[in-house]
């Protein structure tokens, strides 16, 4: 595909003696080699392993074992629950981005503050929140002080709410990234967009909801997709640190990444881990495809490069 000749370089209109494909190949190949090693080789090897046991072909046996494992089902269910954090996160990011956009006095302070969680290392965040959410941690002290001691909980020790607590930490950390992305896009919009609505005297939030939101829809979608993928496949750091690598209490915060990690390295069953990894990979693909399907139907044409 790369070697097909195209004699005219459309970018600068100069006829080429060497084909554009060959030229491009020179520039792209260093990155290409790394990508083929890290992604290409790994994915192929992963797929072949998931159908083998001890080097022998076993068809779908690994998949049957993994998919009927209640632990893996629990892990996938938890990843699915975490997805419900995404709409909350996107809404919060939008609210904060437009509020920051409207703020003049102290804007740079507030902006830096809101972005800070995005910068902090996840292990650090997880350990500090581990302290805050303890039975005698900052949150319960605060709740007691304002007379809400009825709400005080063992936030990370109670299996029913541990996953929710974990989700709140992820939300806290990730929302800043959305604010950066959305704010950057809002600032780049032409100011006439806002002028017109200001004359009409429309209210602050309504203006942004009905005028700004459609304008930045592609960035909102981009952020939503990134975060949905994060929830399904990139929460290992939080869970590993906050539950000391166990996914506890019980298996209340077990997620698929931790399951794969444990199958491969604690239980020494790389074939099962490979099958689970293939399932996780297919889930992410499904998620992305579904997302763009829905998106294309509701706002046809606004997302596309």
């Amino acid at each position: 595909m790369l070697k097909q000749a195209s004699t005219v370089g459309a970018r600068n209109g100069r006829p080429r003696t060497i084909s554009a494909g060959q030229q491009a190949l020179k520039w792209i190949s260093p990155a290409g080699i790394v990508l083929i090693f890290v992604f290409g080789y790994s994915l192929i090897s992963l797929f072949t392993q998931s159908f083998r046991y001890d080097g022998k072909w076993v068809a779908f046996e690994n998949f049957t074992l993994v998919l009927t494992d209640p632990l893996f089902q629990t892990a996938l269910k938890h990843n699915f629950y975490l997805l419900f954090t995404v709409p909350v996160m996107v809404f919060l990011a939008f609210l904060l981005a437009v509020t920051l956009f409207e703020t003049r006095r102290g804007m740079s302070f507030y902006r830096a503050a809101v972005f800070l969680p995005y910068v902090l290392p996840i292990p650090v965040v997880a350990v500090v929140f581990g302290q805050i959410y303890q039975l005698r941690g900052a949150l319960n002290i605060f709740l007691t002080a304002i007379g809400l001691d009825g709400f005080a909980q063992d936030w990370l020790g109670e299996p029913k709410i541990a996953l929710g607590t974990m989700a709140s930490v992820i939300l806290w950390k990730e929302v800043g990234f959305g604010v950066i992305l959305l704010l950057a896009h809002i600032i780049s919009l032409p100011s006439e967009v806002f002028e017109a609505s200001r004359i009409d005297g429309a209210g602050f939030f309504r203006v942004h909801w009905s005028i700004t939101r459609p304008q930045i829809m592609n960035t909102i979608v981009f952020f939503s997709v990134i975060e949905a993928i994060t929830m399904v496949s990139w929460v290992f750091n939080y869970v590993y640190v906050m539950s000391n690598g166990l996914g506890g209490p019980g298996d209340s915060t077990l997620v698929s990444e931790l399951y794969i990690y444990r199958s491969a390295f604690s239980n020494k069953a790389p074939e099962l881990a490979a099958a689970a990894a293939v399932c996780l990979f297919l889930c992410t693909l499904l998620l992305v495809v579904a997302f763009f399907r829905i998106q294309r139907r509701s706002i046809s044409g606004t997302f596309g490069r």
């Binding site: 990508l35 992604f39 790994s42 994915l43 392993q49 997709v225 290992f236 990690y261 990894a277 990979f281």
Partner: peptide
């Protein structure tokens, strides 16, 4: 196509690559 494939690698979970690597 090549660019699209490259960019879409963003969605591959790192844990998936862990075992082969």
């Amino acid at each position: 196509t090549v660019l699209g494939v490259t960019v879409s690698l963003m969605v591959v979970p790192p844990v998936v690559l862990l075992i082969p690597l």
